[in-house]
Design a protein around this nucleic acid. Structure first.
Lengths: 128, 128
DNA sequence: ATAAACCGTGACATTAGTGTCAGGGTCAAC
DNA sequence: GTTGACCCTGACACTAATGTCACGGTTTAT
């Protein structure tokens, strides 16, 4: 199939499909006129890419294990665990930071609403 | 004082101080040789800017109320509440998304570690 | 008078996926 | 034989604060 059809089927923009190809995530052959031609398997590939992108992984990370997971279950792809754990650590770091900022924000909003008189606003610390 | 001293005192890079000025957050006069000259009050201004940047506000948002909060308590600056509330809403949206992604990640990691056989990985949804 | 430390502006890079435009081929249908 | 739908590549924009480099002027001390 050509790129337009793959785009319609997967809901991924043509622009993004070309990008995934440039990042080495998806393969296509070229028709004599230069158009990309995709195997039906490309639908699965794109769906899998979407899934991992939704986990917040980068195309570079995905490329490190995509070939494997397209052929096996994730559990058989040793490359994937380090990526998951790194991402999890990153998420937790971000969650902690956002939680801290949220607490500071709520504090300030509450103070304003309650007309607090002597609140000190010296140090909100969160590494930015 | 000149920019180097203000930078040392506040711990903010010279680059950033110039940036804040371009964004209209901090004022300076120019010495005859073209160097910026800062009032001692600039230290407070920069400290205040740092504080709001650490809350995740942009320089544009800060500029909407900085003049006011430098003269009054926050509670007297009507401009600040909409900014706080907008930021809080954004933080909560991000927290929800990160929490969802984290749950998906933990699920997958657990599945791999437990050697689950029939787990389905169809739809992780979180708007990216 | 020369080196060192300071200051100035302007511009590009960083993140990373996606939108969008320019400029141009290909092909089917009417 | 022309319209319209499809495809191609390449490039810039976007977010937004900060780092960094180029290139050049100023001041201070030796």
């Amino acid at each position: 199939m050509r790129i337009g059809e793959l785009s319609r089927i997967t809901g991924v923009s043509i622009r993004s499909l070309r990008h995934y190809e440039k990042q080495g995530l998806i393969a296509s052959i070229r028709l004599p006129n230069g158009y990309r031609d995709y195997s039906p398997l490309a639908e699965d590939t794109v769906a899998t890419i979407k899934l991992y992108l939704n986990l917040g992984l980068t195309t570079e990370q995905i490329s490190s294990f995509l070939t494997c997971v397209l052929k096996n279950k994730e559990a058989f792809c040793a490359e994937i665990m380090p990526v998951y754990e790194q991402k999890l650590a990153e998420i937790e770091r971000q969650l902690a930071q956002l939680t801290q900022i949220k607490a500071n924000l709520v504090d300030r909003i509450t103070s304003i609403q309650h007309g607090d008189q002597d609140k000190k606003y010296e140090e909100d610390q969160d590494d930015h």
